[in-house]
Design a binder for these strands. Structure first.
Length: 731
DNA sequence: TGCTTCTTCGTTTTT
DNA sequence: CGAAGAAGCA
């Protein structure tokens, strides 16, 4: 077995023996590689003693990745795998700690974790109940005055949607500040106004419902785990002895309480390695994470080694990323200068046996500015098609700002007959399962509607490669003298349909008819069972079966909450594309497996989802001023158009209100702070986008959202900055 | 070009 | 409702 040839920036890290070590690393530096090898080396030297090595990651998919890779290294090194290491997410660790002694934190032994889906259902219920029980008026108070009824409705709808996230984030913040509903109630007694006033009853009921069902949400898990370790000396000792070494991956996404939990476990042995990249911290504005915690750790650690070499991208792509850092740290307005840490990515030295950076023959970075967003998508897809044809082995990533855009790009790719993968909750393919079930229910509700029957057969059951034949066959079914009755129950009618009865087209038609007959006869007393039954009749993949299961679970919950709910209402829910429960169902199902772009594949996703992935060729769309702002005085996403001027930025209002409740005064201009953080996070999001590319990178923006849209948007300032760099290099 | 009046539209990320 | 672009006018 050959010895691993570590790069010079990796050498000091692999020589680690103990203490607090900080490892800030640039994108593509090989964080997983170095951590897995270091863990294997420590195991080889038996440094864990009587304890174990703990590796904490952020996502479930990363857990598996780490396990597989450590196992492989141990095998290669011929070290017996005695399970002296554990890989888990910080949340699983928290659960493990609480399970140990639930009574310390006043919990019943058989508590459960509320996943995103359950949380959404419960919180959604609480909000609804609040409105139904007299809260509606207070809820509407914050919306702008509007005489035009149509716009009044739209404002309310928008507030409805935004309110959910606001409540969720507020509850999370209150929990971290150790403000229980009871405490808040005490504090708020004299307060008559404010958004907290209407969040309080929702928060109260939410906590009550969680408790009643024996559930903890993600925030509770961390908070209680920390509490348990702080209160119970024995428990803390146990974990300190158990984990002699702790590694934390992606620690730029860590929040204060996670840091504290890890701190307590490491207190005794003090062997802690934290690896991360501050410039890739992109979750701060919607979670309690903040890169400042990692920055702090870097300053207070025993040693800090930077991994600043990356072999992922060509030197041109690296140069572009470095220029962005340079621009931000030197030229941006003072408040946002520290968005990026001044840390140049270096290419790997040549001819030293390291895996080297890709070296494309020519400069492969460009930018485009289009008239409309439609045009931007259309041209991008054409570009993608050409690359895919010319270089069939290259992987291509198309990154867009929003999940809705993923859909738009997907539709265009379908038009061009290109195979692709969508990441995120709007995946057309995954949505289709839900849509198909809705179609069938619609037919059950309207049994005599022939068009609906034909639609179900067409979209759900009839499967064939013979596209033309299918079209003709569907036309045959539309013949006037055939009604639903004939099609379903009259075997003679098939004589009218002149078609090869052995073909897969006809066989799948018969299969569909038979199933629909069974479905119509299925008793309506248990709608959740009906959904499972419908799911069974559709030939679908494993992942899609999981979606059906979740769907049935959701319906069961709905029925339990409201006995009188009928099939029509269920249909209405299923066909509501904005229902956030479905997004979570799809996310929960897809999260189980990690994703890795294969050679020749095309991936569409948003900038956030792209983190941790890499492609040969990357398209960055939507680089407008609105999506990537450079100062806090332009139009901002956190300012809500539908709210009264005073409450325009409700998040800031809430922060002020909490401040006031706790200290009797407001200490900061929170609106300004929120906007600054947003500007900074968007810069890092762009940095993440750029550093996904190995060889080719195309940046683009458009002046208008659609050709009908009259308002223009400026390209992001960063696009202009990058443009000038690209122009110089392109010569 | 600079000013007023008329018309149109209302964008978000998620462990 | 209010911001911002378009159209109208001097």
């Amino acid at each position: 077995m050959s010895k691993i040839n570590y790069r010079e920036d990796q050498l000091p890290i692999i020589q680690y023996e103990g203490g607090k070590m900080a490892v800030p690393a640039v994108p593509g530096a090989g964080k997983t590689f170095i951590v897995t090898n270091l863990v294997a080396k420590l195991l080889e030297e038996n440094r864990q003693g009587k304890g174990k090595i703990l590796i904490l990651t952020y996502m479930n998919s990363a857990v598996n990745n780490f396990k597989v890779r450590i196992k492989k290294i141990l095998e290669d090194k011929n070290i017996e795998d005695k399970n002296y290491y554990e890989v888990m997410t910080i949340h699983s660790l928290a659960v493990k700690i609480i399970k140990e002694k639930p009574e310390i934190v006043m919990l019943n032994e058989d508590f459960n974790i509320a996943d995103d889906l359950q949380k959404t259902m419960i919180l959604g219920d609480c909000i609804n109940n609040f409105k139904l029980n007299g809260g509606e008026k207070a809820f509407r108070f914050f919306v702008k005055e509007q005489k035009d009824q149509m716009w009044a409705d739209r404002q309310l709808e928008a507030w409805d949607k935004g309110f959910y996230d606001l409540v969720q984030n507020t509850i999370s913040e209150l929990k971290y500040k150790d403000i229980t509903p009871q405490k808040l109630n005490e504090y708020m007694k004299e307060n008559r106004r404010g958004i907290l006033k209407i969040i309080l009853p929702i928060y109260t009921e939410y906590e009550k419902k969680l408790k009643a069902n024996g559930l903890l949400d993600y925030d509770d898990m961390l908070i209680l785990a920390h509490k348990a370790l702080s209160i119970d000396e024995d428990l803390k000792r146990k974990y300190q002895n158990k984990y002699q070494y702790v590694f934390e991956d992606e620690c730029q996404d860590s929040n204060e309480i996670q840091g504290k939990i890890i701190g307590l476990i490491c207190e005794e042995h003090n062997n802690l390695v934290r690896v991360g990249d501050i410039n890739q911290s992109i979750t701060g504005t919607f979670s309690s994470s903040d890169p400042k915690f990692f920055k702090n750790f870097i300053e207070n650690s025993d040693c800090c080694y930077r991994m600043d070499m990356s072999n992922r991208s060509s030197k041109d792509v690296i140069n572009l990323a470095n220029e962005l850092v340079r621009y931000v740290t030197q030229n941006l307005q003072t408040e946002c200068k520290d968005a990026l840490e001044d840390m140049d990515i270096k290419t790997v030295p040549k001819n030293k046996g390291y895996k080297e950076n890709p070296q494309p023959e020519k400069y492969q970075i460009s930018y485009k500015y289009y008239e409309t967003f439609d045009e931007e998508i259309e041209n991008t897809v054409k570009f993608v098609r050409n690359i895919n044809k010319k270089y069939p082995d290259k992987s291509i990533g198309i990154l867009v700002p929003y999940n809705d855009h993923v859909n738009l790009v997907a539709k265009e790719l379908i038009k061009e007959d290109l195979e692709f993968e969508e990441l995120g909750p709007n995946s057309l393919r995954k949505r289709r399962v839900i849509d198909n079930i809705a179609l069938i229910i619609d037919f059950i509700l309207n049994c005599d509607d022939k068009e609906k029957l034909i639609e179900v057969l067409d979209k759900v059951y009839i499967k064939t490669d013979n596209k033309e034949g299918k079209k003709d066959f569907i036309q045959l079914l539309r013949k006037d003298h055939l009604n639903v009755e004939n099609l379903l129950y009259d075997d003679e009618c098939s004589k009218d349909i002149i078609i090869d009865t052995e073909s897969d087209l006809y066989q799948s038609f018969l299969y569909g008819i038979q199933n629909l007959k069974n479905i119509i006869e299925y008793p309506l007393t248990r709608i959740d069972k009906l959904i499972l039954f419908i799911g069974d009749s559709m030939t679908i993949e494993k992942e899609e079966i999981a979606i059906v299961d979740y769907l049935a679970f959701y319906v069961k919950y709905l029925v339990a909450e409201n006995n009188s709910i009928n099939l029509q209402q269920i249909y209405n829910l299923l066909s509501d594309r904005k229902n956030r429960v479905f997004s979570y169902i799809i996310e929960v199902v897809s999260e189980i497996n990690g994703y890795e772009p294969l050679p020749g594949s095309i991936t569409v996703c948003n900038y956030h989802k792209a983190k941790g992935l890499e492609w040969d060729c990357v398209f960055l769309l939507g680089m407008t001023e609105f999506n990537f702002p450079d100062n806090i005085y332009q139009k901002f996403q956190c300012d809500k158009w539908y709210l009264k001027e005073k409450y325009k930025n409700p998040e800031a209002n809430i922060k002020s209100e909490i401040d006031f409740v706790l200290n009797g005064e407001v200490n900061k201009n929170y609106s300004k702070e929120i906007k600054e953080n947003l500007v900074k996070e968007k810069i890092r999001l762009l940095y993440v986008g750029i550093t996904r590319a190995k060889e080719m990178l195309i940046l683009s923006a458009s002046a208008k959202n659609s050709s009908l849209d009259k308002r223009k948007q400026n390209p992001s300032m960063y696009l202009n900055i990058l443009k000038s760099i690209i122009d110089k290099k392109g010569e």
